[in-house]
Design a protein around this nucleic acid. Structure first.
Lengths: 199, 199
DNA sequence: GTCTATAACGCGATAGAC
DNA sequence: GTCTATCGCGTTATAGAC
């Protein structure tokens, strides 16, 4: 297992990478934050890139495991989507820095790691799309273009950390409820929607 | 006005910055792409950072001007939101690289430029929020939390370029229509929404 | 306006003393 | 496990010839 020191390095790095970007954070910056010299870092990690890979890959596998579990459940598509939204919100709250690194810095992974990451990400999106399409078949959902919907929902969930870090007061459950409602049911008042007769 | 060569440098830089990130693109890379030597760039631009500033600030002012114009119009809030969505989609399509730079690389602007950018961005979000709140007052809109709604819609619109660049077939108008519908009216089928009785 | 040459500096990573 | 010292390389930017 990881030594405590290694985890500490990775967590500190995640925070710095998130704030300033992978390329803008030097090993000297990271060492300073930890109160040691840059050379000492190499007793715990092999390279700067290894740090990034540990941050990102762990989280990428978490997402994969979660959507696989949700896929298996025997509940409505809407409830499946709600569970996925909830998982993204919780990851945003409890693993903010790692999530930001994953979304912003994956291009700086080495070739092999990047390939694995993109495969995981692609499969995640494909499973999400399948869920949406199944929802349309079952009559639970209704939209013009399932692909755009997948992108639209995921882009909100993926960048939630941008916005969340500026908020101090909002409660986890309120955030989950509001996003579930907005993303699934929209924001236009029912009576207005009827009048417009678009739906 | 800008010399043709300068515009060419800025456009090429925008594309490279978007693809590899500001820090990962060296002046040599940029010069190579233009078929000259790195030193020659400095006959046209003062610094690497100046290039980034030109890319970003122009676009930031475009967005500000647009929302100001929409604000003045005497149309419904829903129509105002539709116009804003349309403007974001068109910027995504016709100024893809600059938009990507603005969203991903603004942290690498110098201190003063960054301050101006953040002020413009903050005011844009404030105006968007005011529109949403006015929509609720007028009974056109209905949601739990206007702030989350602003974030949610803007995050979809701001990251649209991620997804759009992988698509070759979708037509501009279809993209505009689908996003307007999803973001405003949601994706759940009307009958299902009634059954769930959440709305 | 482009070139060659180079200054001045910061980077990731290593060697070896303690 | 942390330190000092340093290597080798890449970076932005400038000086001056053509």
């Amino acid at each position: 297992m990881k030594s405590d020191r290694k985890s500490q390095i990775i967590q500190t790095a995640a925070k710095l990478f998130r704030e300033h970007g992978y390329n803008s954070v030097s090993m000297r910056d990271l060492a300073d934050k930890l109160g040691i010299k840059a050379a000492s870092l190499y007793n715990h990690i092999k390279s700067k890139e290894e740090i990034l890979a540990e941050i990102i890959m762990d989280l990428a596998f978490d997402f994969t495991k979660h959507i696989d579990a949700v896929e298996q459940k025997e509940i409505s598509i809407i409830d499946k989507l709600k569970e996925i939204i909830q998982m993204h919100v919780q990851t945003t709250i409890y693993k903010t820095d790692s999530l930001a690194c994953m979304n912003k810095e994956w291009k700086h992974l080495g070739e092999e790691k990047q390939e694995i990451f993109l495969e995981l990400r692609g499969k995640y999106e494909a499973k999400f799309l399948q869920m949406i399409k199944r929802g349309i078949e079952k009559g639970e959902l209704d939209m013009k273009n399932a692909e755009i919907t997948v992108f639209s929902i995921l882009s909100t969930l993926r960048t939630l950390y941008h916005w969340y870090s500026n908020q101090s007061v909002i409660k986890e459950q309120e955030l989950i409820n509001t996003l579930q409602h907005n993303l699934l049911f929209g924001i236009v008042a029912v009576e207005t929607a009827h009048k417009i007769n678009l739906k």
